[in-house]
Write a protein that binds this DNA or RNA. Structure first.
Lengths: 212, 212
DNA sequence: TAGATTGTTAATCGATTAACAATC
DNA sequence: TAGATTGTTAATCGATTAACAATC
């Protein structure tokens, strides 16, 4: 089983490689990618082996081929559709950020309790009332969702998502969600992140910032 | 040196304890907190030792005393003031979430390039033009900042923050920031988080979700 | 007391890095 | 070729857990 950390680094490598590609760079060595990603060259080489794209001795890795390998490894072939629950400021920021930017990962449905928001497009994404979740998720074949509702509504919304068949949730809610085994939950906890920054800003950095 | 993971767990324990306190629970055992936090009882006991608040055999930990210990350990005595850079949808969501909720961690200044946003209060927080950053950060004695600007503006904004004397940055920008040693950067990377969820929703959960 | 929990050490586990043969 | 980089194993490192004496 491939660890979460590896997947996170592969995602970072892809983003870095896209920047390099835009700069016209065609190939690079493991230590060059390592320096950009802030990890060791051995780690880059190990990570890239799981992707199945191999470098060549003395020539390193080709940017284009590596990007193809990463796409085949990370992405769903036909593109992945995601749902958003909660179209407040945070939800709108996420919709705005992903709209048009990532053809392989797009929001195909949003849900909100507020009737003023439902029944129309928000950043190009149709917004439905919560009651239609099960139906829309099945029709659009959605497997993952982003949870951006207030803390008090998070558990109920997560339960609805799971009942609707969602298999992965990215949650911004400051509560631990209870989901059945097999459903993946990733917490993006702004409160804890703020408290970590406050602590280390005061006491001196835990890890040092990247100095490259 | 206390690791980032320990600080993150202490922050989580505090949040869980606040919920328990609101429910009228006065004391609890390490394994009870462990179950709520999703870790082992031994880890809870080890983590709480660094706080300096000790439990008693057979009685466990008192919620009130433990919360006091956590506050003394994690928080700046007079309260910590934070700055926000970038008052778009994401920035506004963060301001709205923290306003009034956490007396010990409040936004005292926001910055934006848009003249339509500067010179007024947004969710109770004064918004300044970027040029005034150094002056405001010094006057308000701000040590930490949240970076919620578009990707292209992130590096410049981070450089300005560092020059203004900021010691900790919580960044939502999908780029690796380059900061001098001693400045702490915490990345809350929504793109990578989305790709992790997409991957594990498809392949089956990496870690299983909490089943409690 | 007997039983259960804490504080703390030793053992375990997993992830990372160092090192090096194979290769170009 | 000589030199440098990849793929991969062995060694290292740090974090987590198991275990248990001390304690109430």
């Amino acid at each position: 089983m491939i660890s979460e950390k590896v997947i996170a680094r592969l995602s970072l490598y892809r983003r870095l490689l896209n920047v390099l590609k835009a700069e016209g760079i065609r190939s690079l060595y493991s230590y060059e990618l390592a320096r950009l990603a802030g990890c060791s060259a051995a780690q880059v080489r190990r990570d890239l082996m799981v992707v199945g794209y191999h470098g060549t001795t003395r020539k390193g890795y080709e940017v284009e081929g590596l990007l193809t390998g990463l796409r085949e490894f990370l992405d769903e072939p036909g593109g992945e559709g995601a749902a958003l629950v909660g179209v407040g400021n945070l939800g709108k920021a996420i919709l705005a950020y992903f709209t048009g930017r990532r053809p392989n990962l797009a929001f195909v449905a949003a849900f909100d309790t507020d009737p003023a928001k439902t029944g129309r497009l928000i950043h190009g994404c149709p917004c439905h009332p919560m009651d239609e979740m099960a139906e829309v998720v099945e029709r659009e074949d959605v497997r993952m969702a982003v949870l951006a509702v207030p803390a008090g509504a998070a558990r109920d919304a997560a339960d609805r998502l799971v009942r609707a068949g969602i298999r992965g949730i990215l949650s911004f809610a400051p509560v631990r969600l209870r989901v059945p085994p097999g459903v993946y939950v990733e917490d993006l906890d702004v409160t804890t992140a703020m408290e970590k920054v406050a602590y280390f800003a005061r006491r001196g950095a835990g890890k040092e910032g990247a100095t490259t």
